[in-house]
Design a protein around this nucleic acid. Sequence first.
DNA 1: GTAGTGACTATAATCTAAACTAGTCACTCG
DNA 2: CGAGTGACTAGTTTAGATTATAGTCACTAC
Lengths: 205, 205
Amino acid sequence: MSEIEPSIPQSRGPADHNVRDQIVDAAEAHFSHYGYDKTTVSDLAKAIGFSKAYIYKFFDSKQAIGEAICGKTLTTIVAAVEEAVAGATTPTDKFRRMFKTLASTSVSLFFNDRKLYDIASYSAGEGWPSAQTYCERIRQILTEVVREGRESGEFERKTPLDETVHVIDLVMRPYVNPLLLQYNLDVAEEAPIQLANLVLRSLAP
Amino acid sequence: MSEIEPSIPQSRGPADHNVRDQIVDAAEAHFSHYGYDKTTVSDLAKAIGFSKAYIYKFFDSKQAIGEAICGKTLTTIVAAVEEAVAGATTPTDKFRRMFKTLASTSVSLFFNDRKLYDIASYSAGEGWPSAQTYCERIRQILTEVVREGRESGEFERKTPLDETVHVIDLVMRPYVNPLLLQYNLDVAEEAPIQLANLVLRSLAP
DNA sequence: GTAGTGACTATAATCTAAACTAGTCACTCG
DNA sequence: CGAGTGACTAGTTTAGATTATAGTCACTAC
C-alpha cells in the first residue's frame, strides 16, 4: 500500500457467476474482520474451498477484490443518502438531509465498521475507481437537488449550474471523501447542519 | 512520530539568550534540509559547537525545538495573511484576499519548503500548541474582518458573530490546516476564490 | 472446451540483533 | 554559582537475513 497505481483494476471471467459472489462474500467477511492487509488471497481461497489460482480467474488482482468490497461499502452510503433525499419534500430540505445523512452515515461506518472504512479511505487516497464513482454519484444527487431547487424558484438561477454544484461540492468534500472525513470527525455532527445553512443562504434567489 | 502527546512542550532557561537563538537557527536550517526525523539533537549541538546536554538547558525536548520552528513557519503564513488584509480596502475584499493568500502561501510553502511543511502538518495532526495558536490567530483575523463588514453594513448582522465566524472557519479549514491542505492541493488555487464568493453571498445583508 | 490446481518466482512483509538517539545526571572548571 | 559536558540508559530505529504473499502458467481431469 504505497505506490500510485494506474488504477484500472478489471474483473475477469463471467460477471455473473456463483463463485464470484462467493469470493466477494468471503472477502467482505474477511476484510471486515481482519482488514485488507491482513487478509491474504489464500485465506479467501480457503474460505470458499477453492485454490488461490482459481480466484484469479475472476479477479485481476487482490486490489480488484478490494475495489468490489469498497464499492459495496460506498454504495451503502449512497443508498442512505438517496433515501434521505427521497424522504424530503422541498429542495431546501433535501439538501439539508442529504448533507447530514452523508456525514452521519459515514461517521457511523467509521465507528462501526472501521476495517471497511479504512479500505474506503485508502481507496479515496489512491483514487480507485470505486471512490471516484462514489464521488461522482454524490455530485449527481447534489446536481439533481440544486436543479430542482432552481426549477421551483427556491434557489437562485443566475450562476451556471455546474459552477454552483462545484462550489457546493467543495464545501461538502471534507465530509464526502472518507480520507478527509477522518480529520473532521470532531465536527462531523454539527458542521453539515451549519454548512448547509450557509450554502442555502448563498443559494437564496 | 506516532503517539498522542499530552503536548505541553515547554521551554527552559532564559527566554532571551544567544544560545537559544543559535539552536533555533541551526534547527531551522537542519529541519529544512534534512527534515525533523533525520535531524538528531546531537547534529544541532555539533552545528553550534556545544554538547547535546547543553541544548536541554534551553529546550524541554526535541519536540519543543520542533514547535519553535513550526511556530516560526506558521507565523510566516500569518504575516502574509495580515499583509494581504491590510492591503485591502473593503471587508469583502479583505475576506477574499485573506482566503486566497492563506491558501496560496501555504501551497507555496508546501512546494518550496516541503520539509518545514511536513513539520507543520505533523504539528497540526498532533494538535501541538504551535498549530493551535496558528488556527486561533487565523480565526481572530477572520473575526476582525467579519466584524468590520458588519459595522460597515456590508455583511448581515442577524446571526451571532461567533456562529458566523465558526461556520466560515469550517469552510476555510481544509485550506488552513496544513494536514488537510495536502489533500486539497488539486483545488487549492481556485477553491478559495469560489468559496469566498459563496461565503460572501451568504453574508449578504 | 471447461473447471480447477500445484508448483513456481519476484516482490513485499516480518523478524531480530545491532546501532542509534532522546533525554538525564552527576560532575568539572573558572 | 553558572556555564558546560561525558558517560549512561531506556527506548527506538535500522539493516539485512528470513519468511510470506501476490500473481502466473503449464498442467490434469472431465
